[in-house]
Each structure stands twice: as structure tokens, then as C-alpha cells.
Design a protein around this nucleic acid. Structure first.
Lengths: 339, 339
DNA sequence: ATCTGCCACGAAAACGGTTTCGTGTTGATA
DNA sequence: TATCAACACGAAACCGTTTTCGTGGCAGAT
């Protein structure tokens, strides 16, 4: 086992001082040509690489960014991470991923672990429990310490920081509008409770489109599922009593699941009933029929978040100005609606 | 912005030495009751938290583990990460995720970035390019430096380290066996080229089961796709000329895609033709019909990998003994085969 | 011969902790 | 009263860098 070589080792071996070695490796003007060549050759030979930890301690920056998300087994978050990773890597940053698993406590613990020097900034999406509680003290603590934070997708107005969101209301709006334009008369929505900020916004967009049309809003056509657990009977009963000719689902799973239910009862998609979901994941792409969705462009979101964060980390001035970037969702048309 | 407080700050404020503060906070016997209480109270009041970087530098351990995987937008890897995260977090470790995106160069760069002190060990799955090249020098370098490595799923025999794999051959075997028991006569397989170690193993299991049966192996019944890009015509042609009554697919996507193709041509699943895939992801669960799969237990794999790695990191002795854990795949029966 | 200035390098502090070892004070003991 | 152990604490080294500042030696100018 050949152990890592340090500046001190090189200095001892070459009978020069540590500072000389350090400067020589940085091609400092201060050091003579001869010495530089000697040191650099030796360093290359023994494959010297500076110790990141020592540099971090010295510079007070780690080149790590912390990403705290509720769940990783979820296509959307996964694409966001990829976007963050790509961008951050290109700028020389590593990504430390922590999962809150929708738990407030885990979110707090993870942030505290990372906030003690391990990272230069956070990119995060709030856990549902945090959003329900409305307790953002862990975020306040971190921002007060001067650690930059970028919130994405599941955000809060209680914290002053950069934010990146999809215009979820617009998403609900354009999807519903699409149905209306296609002449659908009973447009239903299957969503979660309002505790998820995104669900709420999507539902608002849905209602806005309807109220702008001659159809008007009918609350009976909105099914609010109490959790993400699939409750077959609940959905089945809803669809059978309401008999919608179009359904907007707040996520892929509700959509694919509902499509199966109506198919089993003999309805044809998209003619008898059309579907649009949210999140452009594998499920939508390979569903039968493939599902039209409101795409959230997770990868883009990750990139934008990473850019905002790193720019802030590397900016000298301590500007106290924060911006919120709003990305526009787009419809990805597939077989589950009429073309 | 209240900046982080350090030992030095506390020492100055309380007019004691830094060492006293350090010891007092660790409840050292050496320090008097009075002083300890005073220091601890002060520390709590100002919310003192030791700087991780400084501790890392001193202890030469970071409590970070590096995870290098080919792709994160992939259900299997995602579940593995979750398993790693859960286990590692419980033992006080953070997880730094790097994506090779199936590229040899990125894999090398990522490992080099992390190997210079940022992590205590690696958990990784090789990129396809690395497996094709057969160049494992970056892994050798790391292990020679004494950094523990755990390889999972996509592994190589060229490197001495701990490994965790699914018995992919067994997976192919039990799936094929299942078809045989159900009286299927023309059992096809859709796989990728042999460049992916897992595909190769699965195909071998398939062939083994067939050669043990009266059916025997027929190479015409094996379709090797040159890449993961879906080539509709290729699959369609294959299915139409071979007319199998059962198909084993090396992943979910091939399976779901193929199912759609045969459904469009009027065949009934599972009676006319049955399907089994690999990877128990969302796609299988919500496919129509839902897909029977060989489950790989990614989360378990992540846990096991993390345990092996952390045990090695924390073990005093420099044992040079490595083990390979083989997890058994299981069949998750769903609608795509006869019950 | 003396002074000036530059070159090339080294010493040392600093980042924020941990830990070993030394030491002044105290009270008990001979 | 002299000795000594125990106690409570501080000094300093150390982890591996970076960076500021100082300095010895030498060449050229006077």
C-alpha cells in the first residue's frame, strides 16, 4: 500500500522547504526555473495530489454542495439531481445527496450535519412534513450563517433565498385548456391534499381554466386523495359516479392507475375519456396508451438551481438580493388524448 | 449574519485555553465540574458545533462515502442509493454521489476528485464503457492507496475488493424455468450485447434452464439489441418471425415495449404470449398488464454494500480479505404470465 | 569598498480542531 | 516544614495546505 504523498514528503526528499514546494507546484514567479522543474517532476513521478480537506480548511470552502430532497426513488427528483450533478461537476463541485424521506426530523438532522463545514451551499426541496408543519427554523439558521440556499419545486415564502419553481398553476391551466379546446365537457381532476404546494397550484390552474370557460368549476369533479397510497376503490367510485370525459392527474401514478381502471370497465382512451398527468417520467412514456403529460423539465431545474447556487457561492459581494426563477411547463402530447 | 463560533472564540470569551474548552466539551475527567458546566453552557448558548473539516483533517477520516454510478435516472440505481443512504446515515456517514454517465473518462475523473481526501471509501458500479475497455487502473490506484472499495452489480474480477452482486444467472434461470414449467415451448430472450456483465449472466441462466430441459437452446430465439435505444422494427421483426410464446427481457423497458407491440398485433398477454422482465421498477408495477419481473432488491444491495464498506473503513486491522456477497433474485409474479 | 536592490527561498502563522505532555497549585503526609 | 501526589489546566505539536513576510547572498552601481 503506497500511502499518499504530501508537500512535506516532497520537501524532505528534495531538501527544500514546504513553502517552496507549494509555490513551485503553483508555478509561482518567486521560484527559480530549476527548482520548479525539479519539484514538478518529482510530484508527477510520485503522483502528488493536494489533500482536499486541508485545502478546504484553509480556504473555508469545500467545493461540495448539499442536496436535500424528500425522495430519490422518484423520477422527477432524479432528473433534478442529474441536472445539478452535471452542472456542478462542470464547475468543479461535488454533490452530497441527503434524503429527508418526507420527514421533518430527517431534514433537520441532515442539514445540521452538512452545515458544519461540509458544504458551501444547499439545494433543497422541502419534505411534505415540513410543509405541513410550516416550521422553517432549520432553514433560517442556515441562511443566517451566511450559507447560500436554493429552494426548488417545493418551496416556501417564509425563507428569503433563491428559488426555482415550475409554474405549476400554468401547468394545470394549459392542460385543462387543452381539454376544453378539444370539447371535453366533464373535466375531472385527481390530486392530493393541499398540503403539497405543487398539488395546490396545479389544482388552482385547473380551476382557473375552467372558470374562464363556459364550463365553470364543479368541486365534485375534484378528487383529493389523502395520501400517495393508491386506493383503488376510492378512484373507481369517483370515476364511476362522476363519469368524466377527461381527467387531469396531479402525477403519473394516479394517471396510469386510473387509465387501467377505466380500460378494465371497457372505456376507450382517448375517445371515451382522455388523460393528462404531471411529470414526464418513464411511466408516461411506456404506459399503454402512452400518457400526455405536463413536463416539468427537472434536469433544467437542477441546472438552473446549481447555477444560481454556485454563482452566489462564488460571488464576492454579499448581495442580499434573491431571485425566483419560474420555469414554464410544457405539454408532451402522447396517445392518452386526441391529437 | 451570525458567523460560526469556534473553540478559540469560546476560549477567549471564557478566558481559558482552547484545550480546556475542547476537553470540557468532551466531558473529560481532567476538567473540573465548574469549568465543564461553564463551558458547556456557553457552547450551548451560542450553538457551538465543531467544524467537520477540521475534524476530518485531524482524524484523517471524513465520514463521507463516495458513490459512483453510471446513471441515476434509472430505478435500480436509485433504489441502491436509497439503501446506501439509509444505512450510511444511520452510521453517521454522508453520501457523495457522482455520475459516470456510462463514460470511462467521467468515472476516472470523479474517482480522482474524491480520492484526494474527500471520502473514506467508494461504492461503485462500473460504467459500460469501462467494462468494454477493461481498463481498471483507476480502481487499482485507489485500492493501492488503501481506500476501501465495494463494487456492486456491474463488477470486475480484475480488482481485489469487496463485491455485492445479484446472481443474475440464477435470475435468468428461474424466470426461464418458470416458463418451462408453465408449458411454454418457444421461449425467447431480448437482451443487450454481452458488453454488460449483467446481460451476459442473465442470458447464460436462460440458456442453462433451456439446455436442462427438453427444449434445448436455439440461438435464433435470442435477440441482442446493440444499444439501449429502442428499435421498434428490430423487435417487431424478431417477434413476428420467431413467434415465441414466452419472452424473457433483460430489462423493464424492453419488456414493456415488446408487450405493447404484441398487443397491437392482437395477441393476448399472458395466454398467447407471456413476459418476464428484470428490475422491479415502477414500469413493471404499473404496466398494462403488470409485468412479472426478476426483482433485484436494489435497496438491500445498497444496504449490504454500505455495511461492507463502513465495516472495512472502521476496522482497525488491515485485513486483505475480500468477500463477494451474492444476493438471490426473486420472481415477482404479476399479470404478464399465467398464475 | 560600500550600498542598493533583487532573487530565491525559508520561517511561521493560519484554518479549527485533538491530544500529549508539562506544570503550578493545593492539600495531605511524614 | 519538606515532600509528594493529585488535580486542573495550559502549551504546543499535529493534520496538510496557503500565504505573508523576512532574509541571506549576490550582482551591479557608486
Amino acid at each position: 500500500m503506497k500511502t499518499k504523498i504530501t508537500l512535506k514528503d516532497i520537501a524532505r526528499e528534495l531538501e527544500v522547504s514546504i513553502s517552496t514546494v507549494s509555490k513551485a507546484l503553483k508555478n509561482s514567479e518567486e521560484i527559480s526555473r530549476d527548482t520548479k522543474e525539479k519539484v514538478q517532476a518529482f510530484a508527477k513521478l510520485y503522483n502528488y495530489k493536494p489533500n482536499n480537506i486541508a485545502i478546504s480548511l484553509k480556504n473555508k470552502r469545500t467545493k461540495n454542495i448539499g442536496v436535500v430532497i424528500p425522495d430519490i426513488v422518484h423520477h422527477f427528483f432524479t432528473t433534478v439531481i442529474r441536472g445539478i450533478e452535471k452542472y456542478a461537476n462542470a464547475r468543479g463541485y461535488n454533490v452530497i445527496v441527503c434524503l429527508s424521506e418526507e420527514s421533518f426530523d430527517k431534514e433537520v438532522i441532515n442539514m445540521e450535519m452538512l452545515a458544519n463545514g461540509s458544504i458551501d451551499g444547499f439545494i433543497m426541496s422541502l419534505s411534505s412534513e415540513t410543509q405541513q408543519k410550516g416550521d422553517y427554523n432549520h432553514l433560517k439558521e442556515v441562511t443566517e450563517q451566511g450559507i447560500p440556499v436554493v429552494l426548488f419545486d417545493r418551496i416556501t415564502n417564509e425563507i428569503d433565498c433563491d428559488k426555482v419553481v415550475i409554474d405549476d398553476e400554468l401547468g394545470g391551466y394549459i392542460a385543462t385548456k387543452k381539454f376544453i379546446e378539444q370539447g371535453k365537457r366533464k373535466i375531472a381532476m385527481i390530486t392530493t391534499g393541499d398540503y403539497l404546494s405543487v398539488s395546490k397550484a396545479r389544482t388552482m390552474g385547473y380551476q382557473k381554466a375552467l372558470s374562464e370557460s363556459s364550463l365553470g368549476v364543479n368541486d365534485d369533479l375534484v378528487l383529493k386523495m389523502p395520501s400517495m397510497e393508491m386506493d383503488e376503490n376510492r378512484i373507481k367510485e369517483f370515476l364511476e359516479t362522476q363519469k368524466p370525459d377527461a381527467v387531469l392527474c396531479v402525477n403519473e401514478i394516479f394517471a396510469v392507475y386510473s387509465m387501467r381502471l377505466v380500460q378494465k370497465s371497457g372505456l376507450k382512451i382517448p375517445d371515451d375519456i382522455s388523460f393528462i398527468g404531471f411529470t414526464d417520467g418513464v411511466l408516461s412514456k411506456y404506459a399503454n396508451p402512452s400518457l400526455t403529460v405536463v413536463a416539468q423539465h427537472g434536469e433544467k431545474m437542477g441546472e438552473v438551481s446549481a447555477k444560481m447556487l454556485i454563482d452566489k457561492i462564488e460571488s464576492e459581494e454579499e448581495e442580499e438580493t434573491y431571485q425566483t426563477k419560474i420555469l414554464e411547463p410544457t405539454l408532451v402530447i402522447r396517445e392518452s388524448i386526441n391529437q
